[in-house]
Simulated scan of single mutants.
Amino acid sequence: MFQPFLRHLEQELFSRFELKSRPIDPELEFQMSKRGKNPAMIESWCYQSPELRKIRYTYINAGKMAQIFNSVLYPSYGYDMPLLGIDFLAFGQKKILVVLDFQPLFRDEGYMEKYIEPVKAIRDRYDELAQDLPMRFYDAAQYFSPYLLFAKTDADTVVNSLLPAFKEYLDLYCTMLKNLKPTDDPERIAKITQAHKDYDQYSADRDPAAGLFNSYFGHEWSEQFLHEFLFEESTPSESAKAEIETDSASESESEQTANV
């Protein structure tokens, strides 16, 4: 379902930036699962450029049971740009959750005006993808913008609305980044670096997809994937892990992930 998004992301990034591959542990780059009734495949890619220190994206293909596309673009530390966060999950043709956002590193008025307000014009064209849904695992006021696209939707909307919205968000993001001049202020770079680390730790502690990874690929692989690839600046947190596992245990695999 989300392969057109992956292909467009690659096309745009390779045409706009001088990308180089970042190495991935082969065990994390590709895995096949035959656990349970529904086999699944997970494949990941990772690149970097002078403007982007890390571009990662992952696709999970479990046939009709699940299709998941996840990506985060991390600007280099000289840029205080938001991260671009992408998380599209489909469990069949009708149970689909989509998340797309410029994820702010800072929330002062000047920062939000510069980097987040330009998103408003795009977001306003896609009201059907900006639903007022509750967030079970995250604080909406932290690392999410007011112009977040967050919706439970269907396959037709994915094609007719989500794909064009995705193209517009990505185009704006790449254009903004290409037009920026990186800072050489050591103090600002240190703050940006810490903000990236804080984002990774926050995300790793709360990511509900850990339960899905566990169910398909096992706990040990899931922990390694979470902390060594998805959020490599994070360290395992026992308390957060226990909280996620408690919440996950009360729900089915798909319901738990779709209630991000």
Rank of each mutant, 00 (worst) to 15 (best):
E228T: 11
F213S: 06
E232I: 12
D139M: 07
E220R: 12
L177W: 07
E187L: 12
G211K: 07
D205A: 08
G218H: 03
Y216P: 01
N160Q: 15
E255I: 13
L177A: 04
S254P: 03
Y143I: 02
E223V: 08
S250R: 13
A140H: 10
L212E: 09
D185P: 06
E255Q: 14
F229L: 15
F213Y: 15
P186C: 01
S234L: 04
R206L: 11
C174A: 15
T153P: 04
E117P: 03
E253I: 15
E223S: 07
E223I: 12
F217C: 00
Y169F: 14
N214H: 12
D247M: 12
F229R: 02
F229H: 12
K114G: 01
A258E: 09
E113S: 14
Q194W: 07
N160A: 14
N214E: 14
A121D: 11
A249T: 08
G211E: 07
A165F: 01
I122T: 03
N160C: 10
L170M: 00
E128C: 12
R125Y: 04
A258I: 13
R136E: 12
Q142Y: 12
S248I: 14
V158G: 02
Y126V: 08
F229S: 01
I189K: 10
N214V: 11
S250V: 11
Q131A: 06
R206K: 13
R206Y: 05
Q201V: 05
E255C: 09
V119G: 00
L226D: 02
P164A: 04
N214Y: 15
Q256R: 14
E187Q: 13
P186F: 07
A155M: 10
Q201T: 11
L212N: 00
F150W: 13
D127R: 14
D184P: 04
T157A: 09
Y147K: 05
P236H: 00
